[in-house]
């Protein structure tokens, strides 16, 4: 297990230049930092996500997970640091980098006055994909995610889980090499969640890389092979799941790392009814 401090290396150093050809990581962050007013949301996070891994990012609420992933995917400009996707700098060559990534951002709206089928086709066409390829993939994705029946319903009339699924499908349509999914299982029903896990497992097995953020530890422990623990904008631990949890359950290890368990003796009034 490696406990990382904010990275001391210069961000200009290309990741593979000084080492004899290690495999290029799917995502490589160096010293990413972002401040919102006086609040430091992300405080120098450096992280390598190996290609072909199923990578979980866990952290308490407000730890900076979403901010980090937004900066890594080109949605939010970092104040410091770099992000490379398969060696392509997200902020120097955004168009090339975005071609390699499929992104499911958390907490953003969708173009919800389109039907599910239209939204999915739109996501494909925006990527400059061929019309017939888009049509075929849309059909398959809708079927795989159990949305075939609601293809013609406006997304605004979808339930929360269906909305999450159509957003996930939009991130998959161009067959990216790296999938970045922010809270992909929130409000998704268990059956759909199992379907999505199957899809992601097969995707990883055939060489794709998945990064998911979550605060459901059990899910991450079962699903991911690597995990990073983030709290208060810093990286506390990163590595394979077994390394990080060091024999304990991931949840216990997480609580140890993050700290902040409050005394359970308080709130006596809550038991007085």
């Amino acid at each position: 297990m490696t406990v990382q401090q904010p990275d001391p290396r210069s961000p200009e150093t290309p990741p593979a230049a000084d080492l004899p050809a290690p495999p290029i990581p799917a995502l490589s962050l160096r010293g990413l930092a972002k401040r919102f007013g006086p609040k430091i949301a992300v405080d120098g996070i450096s992280l390598d996500v190996p290609a072909g891994s199923f990578y979980g990012i866990v952290g308490p609420n407000g730890a900076g997970k979403t901010t980090t992933l937004s900066m890594a995917t080109g949605l939010l400009r970092p104040e410091f640091g770099t992000a490379l996707v398969h060696g392509v700098d997200v902020w120097q060559q955004p168009l090339e980098a975005k071609k390699l990534m499929g992104i499911l951002p958390d907490g953003v709206r969708l173009f919800d006055r389109l039907t599910g089928e239209q939204l999915l086709s739109y996501a494909g066409l925006l990527r400059g994909m061929d019309k017939d390829v888009v049509a075929a993939r849309v059909k398959e994705l809708l079927a795989a995610l159990d949305l075939g029946m609601d293809a013609g319903t406006l997304v605004v009339d979808y339930s929360a889980g269906m909305t999450k699924k159509i957003a996930l499908a939009s991130a998959l349509i161009h067959a990216p090499r790296l999938l970045v999914l922010d809270e992909p299982f929130e409000s998704v029903d268990p059956v759909s969640a199992a379907n999505i896990r199957d899809i992601l497992d097969r995707y990883v097995a055939s060489g794709g890389t998945v990064i998911v953020s979550s605060h459901v530890m059990d899910l991450v422990q079962r699903m991911c092979d690597h995990v990073a623990v983030v709290a208060a904008g810093r990286l506390l631990a990163a590595g394979s799941v077994d390394e990080v949890r060091a024999g304990e359950s991931l949840e216990d290890r997480f609580v140890q790392l993050v700290g902040g368990r409050s005394q359970t003796g308080g709130l006596a009034w809550l038991r007085t009814f």
Binding site: G74, L75, L95, K99, P105, V108, R109, D112, A123
Partner: peptide, 14 residues
């Protein structure tokens, strides 16, 4: 568009 604009940004639309 509100934050749905993120789709354009994430897709690398010119």
């Amino acid at each position: 568009d509100s934050t749905a604009f993120a789709l354009h940004l994430a897709s690398g639309v010119r």
